Amino acid sequence: MQNDQLSVHDPDWDAVLALLPPPTPPPASLADARDIWRNVILPLVRSNNEPLLPKESEYRVEDHQIPVEGGQITLRSLIPTPSSTADRKYPLLYFMHGGGRYLWWVYGTIDLDDFFLRAICVEFQIVVVNVEYRLAPEFPFPTPIDDAYAGLKWAAEHASLFSASLAKGFIVSGTSAGANLATVLAHRARDDPFFKDSRISGQLLQIPSTVHPGAYPEEYKAELNSYATLGDPRILDKRAMDDCYGGYPESPSKYGAPPSDPECSPLLYPSHVGVAPAYIQVCGADALRDEALLYERLLREDGVQTKMDVYVAPLGFHHLHRAYCISSDTQG
């Protein structure tokens, strides 16, 4: 089957997976699932990234409360502070955390990637703005997108506040569901006169979700096999995603995005011409692998410059060794 050669595990990853506990039944409620994120996943992610933290003197952290429709959200800025270049200006990376994939934007927090982003802020001397968009189902589609887009505009207008210069680089980025948001923001910004003089210069998409399984285009169905055949029940597979998608009474299957809406499934935009160049990271054994590969191809066919790396790894590698992947590949 097409792309099957990409799903072979590296022996080192097989050894890591062998240490995982057996699969467990899905949480009984969305509240229980969020508790697992807060009390299990978040501490694990932070402990894995803590050894990579730079010295506190090498960067500063500032939280900003910005108004959005119906409330406010937090933008956390991470700003390099090298002692020898006090007046230096930096590129800006606008980042959106993951959380939910096809349970659209229901998990996650600004703290999920905080340690990782502090490390790359200093290593690459880049300003990072991390957005705490509001979550569904309390704030259903398109609120998470609208929040992230409002934050993007605010960051662009206040770049000098972060010691950033958009002329040096203005990148939208995210992981999983956050990467989905990044693709949508890149398309919105392409068509918005607001960004005429502050254009997005790049997209960094980590394990992106790009098309809802209920909206696969007929002409591409033969290429989209990984959702049904890949994944790991101890991490995430089709059964778990299907259970989550329809299993909670309060899930976004009731309140969420229409699968065929391009702002839910960005692969379905009628044209990708003119969006910013994209660097895409894909896991070879991830259930959502094939849609990321197809999305990259469609971008190229519409004249968008792309670079893609496929890792011999399952979903979850980005939380375990993600810093290594970013460090090695963005320099390439």
Results as ranks from 00 to 15, higher is better:
residue 192 D to R: 06
residue 250 E to C: 05
residue 163 S to F: 15
residue 231 G to C: 06
residue 204 L to I: 11
residue 208 P to E: 10
residue 200 I to W: 03
residue 149 Y to K: 04
residue 154 W to V: 13
residue 153 K to S: 04
residue 147 D to P: 00
residue 194 F to D: 05
residue 184 V to N: 09
residue 162 F to V: 12
residue 152 L to Y: 00
residue 236 L to Q: 09
residue 216 Y to H: 04
residue 248 Y to N: 13
residue 222 A to H: 00
residue 173 S to V: 00
residue 187 H to L: 12
residue 199 R to Q: 09
residue 206 Q to I: 13
residue 215 A to D: 01
residue 208 P to A: 12
residue 188 R to I: 13
residue 201 S to E: 05
residue 205 L to Y: 01
residue 261 D to K: 01
residue 223 E to W: 06
residue 243 D to M: 13
residue 261 D to Q: 03
residue 259 P to E: 01
residue 180 N to G: 15
residue 155 A to T: 09
residue 226 S to M: 06
residue 260 S to V: 15
residue 212 H to I: 13
residue 172 V to E: 01
residue 180 N to S: 06
residue 248 Y to M: 15
residue 220 Y to A: 07
residue 211 V to R: 07
residue 182 A to S: 11
residue 176 S to G: 13
residue 208 P to G: 10
residue 229 T to Q: 05
residue 210 T to F: 06
residue 200 I to D: 00
residue 189 A to K: 04
residue 227 Y to M: 07
residue 263 E to V: 15
residue 258 P to R: 09
residue 173 S to D: 00
residue 214 G to M: 04
residue 173 S to P: 03
residue 165 S to Y: 00
residue 155 A to F: 04
residue 169 G to E: 01
residue 232 D to S: 07
residue 212 H to K: 09
residue 231 G to T: 03
residue 183 T to P: 14
residue 232 D to Q: 05
residue 229 T to C: 03
residue 209 S to H: 09
residue 221 K to F: 02
residue 189 A to W: 01
residue 156 A to C: 08
residue 151 G to D: 05
residue 150 A to H: 03
residue 173 S to K: 01
residue 215 A to E: 03
residue 158 H to D: 10
residue 244 C to R: 07
residue 198 S to T: 08
residue 214 G to W: 01
residue 249 P to I: 14
residue 158 H to L: 13
residue 258 P to V: 11
residue 148 A to L: 06
residue 157 E to N: 09
residue 166 L to R: 02
residue 262 P to E: 10
residue 234 R to T: 01
residue 225 N to A: 05
residue 197 D to P: 11
residue 168 K to M: 11
residue 208 P to W: 03
residue 229 T to E: 02
residue 257 A to T: 14
residue 263 E to Y: 06
residue 156 A to L: 02
residue 183 T to M: 14
residue 184 V to G: 10
residue 192 D to M: 03
residue 231 G to R: 00
residue 187 H to G: 10
